[in-house]
């Protein structure tokens, strides 16, 4: 704001406080509700004051929804999605930006177009593929030879099935491409003159230079992977592979059951923590990387 009048300042602060309350409000409800007893959480009016029952409620939620396995599964899934995505996008963008091939434009647009097709849109065909990976080969064989080959090969109930479809999307590639384009051509040329080949250049130059980029993507992707609900719901039937978002359903009080919202809220607080920790830890590096940009 260019003008600084008391009224303008008051208005600014007003809007800011309103926005802050809007964001922090639900969180306050979760924290206070999760620390209250069954009676307190169901009393009207609702008390926004935290009580001392937090740990009890948490442990109740942990056992009821068997959060142990679910947390582990979610953590493995989110980590695999993050690592896979960062690796894949760094490499695809490298191929698109630094190599001169006749089909470069074609490949870029093929990748780019998938930006408009998030998982939710293509969930049915993606499921069909994941559920029967051998199908294309089988179709080919039956078309050529007339034989029906029966091979059962699918990704249901596996970490591969949980993560692969989430890894193959364009957002990260696009982010990396934009970053690579900001690097001067001379950098690659100087490295070439110094005798470094493409792989060496990638490891020695691009990886260290894209650290900020990588951490930003890691933050986003971990939260994205952790919060997946629809896809695990489709891929997983075996309780061994349940993720936290699925077990959240088990925490909801059933229609005619006891409305113990305190346990539900404590459970969701546990589930919320890992992404919160990741954001809190990486944000420090993230901001540092942004501030100390080197030319």
């Amino acid at each position: 704001m260019i003008q600084r009048t008391p009224f303008a300042n008051a208005l600014t602060y007003g809007v800011m406080i309103f926005g802050f309350l809007l964001l922090i409000g639900p969180f306050v409800v979760i924290v206070s509700g999760a620390s209250q007893t069954f009676q307190q959480v169901n009393s009207i009016p609702f008390s926004f004051l935290p009580q001392d029952r937090l740990l009890e409620n948490m442990s109740a939620a942990w056992t009821r929804a068997s959060l142990g396995t679910a947390m582990l599964n979610s953590f493995v899934m989110a980590s695999l999605v993050t690592v896979g995505k960062v690796a894949l996008s760094a490499l695809t963008a490298f191929a698109i930006v630094f190599f001169r091939t006749p089909l470069k434009g074609f490949f870029f647009w093929m990748v780019f177009i998938t930006l408009m097709l998030p998982l939710e849109v293509r969930v049915v065909p993606t499921y069909a593929v994941a559920a029967d990976l051998f199908q294309p080969v089988r179709l080919l064989i039956s078309a050529v030879t007339g034989f029906e080959v029966s091979v059962d090969w699918n990704l249901l109930n596996s970490y591969a099935g949980l993560t692969l479809p989430l890894i193959a999307t364009a957002t990260g590639t696009f982010l990396y491409r934009q970053f690579y384009l900001t690097l001067p051509d001379e950098l690659a040329e100087a490295a070439r003159m110094d005798g470094s080949g493409p792989i060496r250049f990638f490891i020695d130059m691009l990886l260290p230079l894209s650290r900020t980029n990588m951490l930003a993507l890691t933050t986003i992707m971990f939260v994205y992977g952790w919060n997946q609900y629809l896809w695990p719901l489709l891929m997983v039937t075996d309780p061994q592979y349940k993720t936290t978002m699925m077990s959240l359903v088990a925490l909801l009080p059933s229609d005619n059951g006891t409305p113990d919202w305190n346990v539900t809220l404590a459970g969701s607080l546990i589930i919320m923590l890992p992404p919160l920790v990741v954001v809190a830890v990486l944000q420090r590096w993230f901001v540092r990387g942004l501030v100390a940009t080197e030319k």
């Binding site: 001379e186 040329e189 100087a190 490295a191 003159m193 110094d194 005798g195 130059m205 260290p208 230079l209």
Partner: peptide, 17 residues
């Protein structure tokens, strides 16, 4: 690298990291 040339670029192209 096989030509035995070394080059100094206009914007120096130093490795910033």
């Amino acid at each position: 690298r096989e030509r035995g040339c070394a080059m100094v670029f206009q914007n120096y192209a130093l490795y910033p990291h």
